[in-house]
Write a protein that binds this DNA or RNA. Structure first.
Lengths: 211, 211, 211, 211
DNA sequence: CGATAAACGAGACGGTACGTCTGGTCTTGTG
DNA sequence: CACAAGACCAGACGTACCGTCTCGTTTATCG
């Protein structure tokens, strides 16, 4: 029968990450990464890779997830706002490095591979959001956040600009960005007292429901 | 002497868009699009394309920008919130179609071509933001929006989730999304009265000015 | 493992010869022959050709040598002069056809590829000369040819004008040419009353007529 | 009105020769020579070249003939054999250099251009042969050469091996080659005791030594 | 001497082949 | 029978020249 070789699997994952985030400036992009190169560096046959992964991108995603150290924990002790800010700062700090480049390249490649995108979203994005959603929930329970918001959508409010900065190279990924996002996202942009009723239109604010 | 042929330029742009957003289901992705195919369909030599564009992506961006009908206008008469909502609905509606696919593919390709990304950002993104920034400005002047916000960052607050939905296929691009975004972005997620001072941490809200 | 495919090799050689000496008038020159055309006609990838041959010319030479039926045999029974004459007539007869065109084109291409020239010389020319040198040797041993001559140089004396006619299109490649060459080469051009009658064969020496 | 510009013609011819036989090691082959390069170096438009010459090869032939210093003169005073030997030595000496490379490349290119070959043959080869034919004629008249030979064919007897050496890189182009050719061509290869002493000039016929 | 038609420089154009590259499949032989 | 090795088909890549074709601009005769 012969069963899948764990050592081969490991060698492939390692070779992939090595080629993508290599010490020197010899790191290459996901696009330039080739299955051949992975095979050579892993001391493995191309056929072995194709036998177990449907595509180069699937290997990269597996490699990324494996080397993607456990989720950035969100404090449950700090006030929600501070916890959120600390989390975003940590996240943004990581994305400023090669990790960020890699993520944006994976997202890019996924545009051509819906299956890979679905896989990546469920393994990477959902995890990420779940933590923030939990924080949102705590904020709501503590009465700090409005109870009519959808935690999922709210989470996007803070995350979306980060990924946008990553993908569009809109500006530096630094602590200030985190501060602005928290500030804007929490307070909103409207002046307080009259909000949502007299001045602003008349859109009925249904109970948010996320997808 | 000898001057660039407008007819060739047009033929190339048209052929490119045609291949990318073709009526039938024969449309192809930017990745699968080849310079050879453009050349053949445009009745033009490959060399002619390479003479005027540095890469396939540059052609695609030019083609996209050319067929990207004038900016979605933002009403200056409606209340700011309604104008913003109408704008986002229109935008999202467009992105739900082939236009959206194309944009996400362009963003994807740009991850490997910083020059193209810079070009695309300045021609596409900045234009787009400028309109919303103007709206933010109006909101501030009318006293509807806080005066201490950076219009640029505020614009991102509404746009970012749209592009994130596009790139991550997070959910349907429909009117409801627009409504949620406007609602959340404007009001913020905090409960109103006590905001920003006693309960929430202690971040000093300097006059935010983003990059 | 994985070993060179003989069927591919054969298909490439055959396609090449087919394109070069095709039945119809659709035969093409070595210069116009393209690796792409060979690949297409052989049902083979270009890469496969480039993997095993350094250049188009190398393929052509291999194809030529493979389809170059065994060496024109030189009789060892006939008197040396008659044997030489018969050999030259046979050779010239062959060169009058498409074979000759091909050879001259190969020689032409070799002017830009010293390695190919060396290869062609050693596989084609040396073989050819060896046979005549042997004949020269026999002539010397039989006392018909001078013993102070170099068989190699002597062989050139007869061959050189043939190839010159081929390359310069100096005149018809026919039996008369062979007769003149044998007559001139053996007797020399100097007056010598006694020669050419008693010893040498019996070819009637007609009055020389130029082209 | 407006007549062909001699200065352009000159510039084109000069640029061509310059590119082909350039001082440094930057000389290029006829194959690699491009009309564009000639045009650029001559400060002339490509169209001007194509207006006056049918092909690159035609330009090269014109350039070669123009810079091909007056025909190697053949002495009319020396004994015919000595004159012939001196002529061949001079010729071979020249062909050992870049001149020889160029000639063989021209011959090579002419294999694909019958018109150019005819032109080159009539301007280069015929001239060359005419001189030797004249010498043959003198030899015949002086009774040194047989009267039944065709001067044209006899001339080929001496020239052909030279060009063969050039095209096949058979061996060094040196004085010894000239001596062998003269010796073999005049005396022939047949045994003939009485020849070569009383009648022919005074060159001591050493025992033949091969290369 | 001024008109006028050619020859000219510049260089864009449609073509076409180049030799390299990668993807993904298939084959062969080893452990 | 999983695997390493690697040959295989397919076809795009970006470059280079080809020979043709406008363009205006000289320029040298001729009316």
């Amino acid at each position: 029968m012969a069963v899948r070789s764990e050592s081969s699997r490991k060698a492939i994952i390692d070779a992939t990450m090595d080629l993508l985030v290599r010490d020197g400036r010899r790191a290459i992009t996901v696009q330039k990464l080739t299955v051949e190169a992975i095979a050579v560096r892993a001391g493995v046959s191309k056929a072995t890779i194709y036998r177990w992964w449907p595509s180069k991108l699937a290997v990269v995603i597996d490699a990324f997830m494996e080397n993607h150290l456990a989720h950035v924990r969100i404090s449950e002790k700090l006030p929600v706002r501070d916890a959120l800010l600390a989390h975003l700062k940590a996240l943004i700090g990581r994305y400023a490095g090669p990790q960020g480049k890699l993520i944006s390249q994976i997202i890019a490649e996924c545009q051509y591979d819906p299956a890979a995108l679905a896989d990546f979203r469920s393994r990477f994005w959902n995890d990420r959001c779940a933590a923030v959603e939990k924080l949102m929930q705590r904020g709501i329970e503590e009465g700090v956040f409005r109870s009519d918001i959808d935690p999922g959508r709210a989470a996007q409010l803070f995350y979306a600009p980060v990924y946008l900065h990553l993908l569009f190279a809109l500006g530096p990924l630094d602590d200030e960005l985190a501060e602005r996002l928290v500030e804007l996202g929490i307070q909103g942009i409207a002046t307080c007292p009259e909000r949502g009723v007299t001045i602003l239109g008349s859109v009925a604010l249904g109970a948010g429901r996320a997808t």
